[in-house]
């Protein structure tokens, strides 16, 4: 019973992480790089038009960071889960 509960908690926390990270994934690529590109191009950062920078550089950096954050979050969740599972209480 305890194990089932821990399993369910693990899975729903995992889904919450996924939803948050994929939201950012969508925002930096489809949002900033495509849908809002013209608006962001009005701003200039380090010689780039901002929308253009997101489309050709920024989105890619953000992708790398997203996976990094995911790895850290999940490793932490894995540790907590294996503790919950062993905990007899």
């Amino acid at each position: 019973m305890k194990r089932d509960q821990a399993r369910r908690a693990y899975w729903s926390q995992n889904l919450r992480y996924l939803a948050g990270l994929l939201l950012v994934w969508f925002a930096v690529s489809f949002g900033a790089g495509i849908l809002l590109v013209e608006e962001l191009d009005q701003l200039r950062v380090f010689g780039f038009k901002l929308g253009f920078w997101f489309a050709q550089q920024g989105a890619i950096y953000a992708f790398v960071v997203l996976i990094l954050v995911y790895v850290v979050l999940m490793n932490r969740l894995d540790r907590r889960y294996s503790r919950d599972e062993e905990d007899p209480a």
Partner: peptide, 14 residues
């Protein structure tokens, strides 16, 4: 650029 890198986020997460 975005298409061939953004897929890795899906791959890693899903």
């Amino acid at each position: 650029l975005m298409g061939w890198t953004g897929g890795y986020v899906l791959l890693a997460l899903l």
